[in-house]
Structures are given as structure tokens and as C-alpha cells.
């Protein structure tokens, strides 16, 4: 007999998440724990500013990402193709926005996949969660890539009916200082509130 439980209520992460919990390699998804063993795929760099209301840069935001590997697989039993997953790719990263409100990640470009639950074709995408003081619940959204024909069919991208709003989730090719020389760089600013507000999804 299964005992049904109700999830523990969420709370804000507050301003005091320990700095020592952000490890050096946590924002670099191109390896797991051995830098000599690299994930397969095209190396990419993603960076941007996080803004609160009135375009004030928000430092001390916790940003986490989750994505499939270059072949569109997850190393997780819910993925029927998990045995094909890249052993040198975990798909998870974490970063704190710095004093100027900048966040960034080094990763590989995710592959698209056909969703086994819904049959939808998912375009390459990266799930993002934002946690901050003031946010009693995390904010979740998904980033997409430019010039991807698959975006037109993606059920999450198209869950936003306004074309100009869903456009805000498309990474923009950019020259960025922190990008490794061998990575394709993209910028995406995240606006928590106000003009150009980032669309978020029901969590």
C-alpha cells in the first residue's frame, strides 16, 4: 500500500547560500569530475545578466541548468535511451550571479529528442531554474537556440502564444569575454520583472 505524501513547502533560498557550495567545476558541464574526460559535442558558452525590477542587476542569484547530452539523451532511468547517454556528461550545472548580476555556463550543445511521454519532438533546449532571496518558489524557464527549424514544433517553446515573448528565450550569438576560445558563445539576459520580462513556466 502506497502512502501518499504531500511535498514539503518551498521557501526562498535567502541571501546566505554558502559561497563554498559553489564548486569551481559546477558551472562547467563539459566534464563531470575528471577534466581529462570530456563530454562529446559542440562546446558552447552561455552568459547574461539577471535583472530585477527597474533593470537593477541582481547579484547573488542561484542559477541551475539541466539539459540532455549532445545526442539528446539523459543518464536517467526515465529515459528509454539512457544506455546511450554520454558517460562524461552529467547535464547539471550551478552558478551564482556575480556582483554585476552576470551568470554563465560552459556546456555542450544539447541534442533534440522525441519525447517518449507525449510524442512531441523537442528542439535542442536547456532548462533553467532561478533561486534568489525574495523568491519563495524558484522560477523555471527553458532556453532555445537560434536558427533551429525544430523550434517551430517544440511544445514548450510554443506554449507561449506571443511570438515576441517566446523570442526572449532564444539565445543570441555574441562575443563574450568569459567564453573559452573553442566555444560558440551565446548571450541571454534574464529579466525577473518589468520591460522585456523573461517568460517563466508553471513549475
Amino acid at each position: 500500500m502506497v502512502k501518499k505524501r504531500t511535498p514539503t513547502p518551498s521557501h526562498t533560498v535567502g541571501p546566505f547560500f554558502p559561497a563554498r557550495f559553489f564548486g569551481e567545476g559546477d558551472y562547467d558541464l563539459t566534464f563531470v569530475d575528471d577534466p581529462a574526460k570530456r563530454a562529446q559535442g559542440q562546446k558552447i558558452y552561455i552568459g547574461g545578466n539577471i535583472y530585477e525590477a527597474e533593470r537593477v542587476p541582481r547579484w547573488n542569484c542561484m542559477v541551475e541548468i539541466w539539459q540532455p547530452d549532445a545526442g539528446g539523451c539523459f543518464n536517467h532511468p526515465n529515459d528509454p535511451r539512457h544506455s546511450h547517454a554520454d558517460p562524461n556528461f552529467m547535464g547539471w550545472g550551478r552558478r551564482s550571479s556575480d556582483d554585476a548580476g552576470w551568470y554563465d555556463f560552459v556546456t555542450v550543445k544539447p541534442g533534440g529528442y522525441t519525447d517518449p511521454l507525449t510524442g512531441f519532438r523537442r528542439a535542442p533546449h536547456i532548462d533553467v531554474a532561478i533561486m534568489s532571496s525574495g523568491l519563495m518558489r524558484r522560477l523555471v524557464t527553458t532556453l532555445f537556440f537560434p536558427d533551429e527549424p525544430a523550434n517551430a514544433e517544440d511544445p514548450v517553446f510554443n506554449a507561449i502564444p506571443e511570438a515576441d515573448v517566446r523570442e526572449r528565450l532564444i539565445l543570441k550569438p555574441a562575443k563574450l569575454e568569459g567564453a573559452p576560445a573553442d566555444a560558440t558563445a551565446y548571450r541571454l539576459d534574464i529579466v525577473l520583472q518589468g520591460d522585456g520580462e523573461t517568460p517563466f513556466f508553471v513549475d
Binding site: F74, D127, V202
Partner: peptide, 15 residues
């Protein structure tokens, strides 16, 4: 810091 617009409903997929 809370968005002014309500969140969009999306289908839950493998990700």
C-alpha cells in the same frame, strides 16, 4: 523579483 506576468503552462516532457 517576482515576475509581473503569470507563468505559462507547458507540457511536462522528459527533460
Amino acid at each position: 523579483r517576482s515576475p509581473s506576468r503569470p507563468p505559462y503552462k507547458r507540457p511536462v516532457t522528459l527533460t
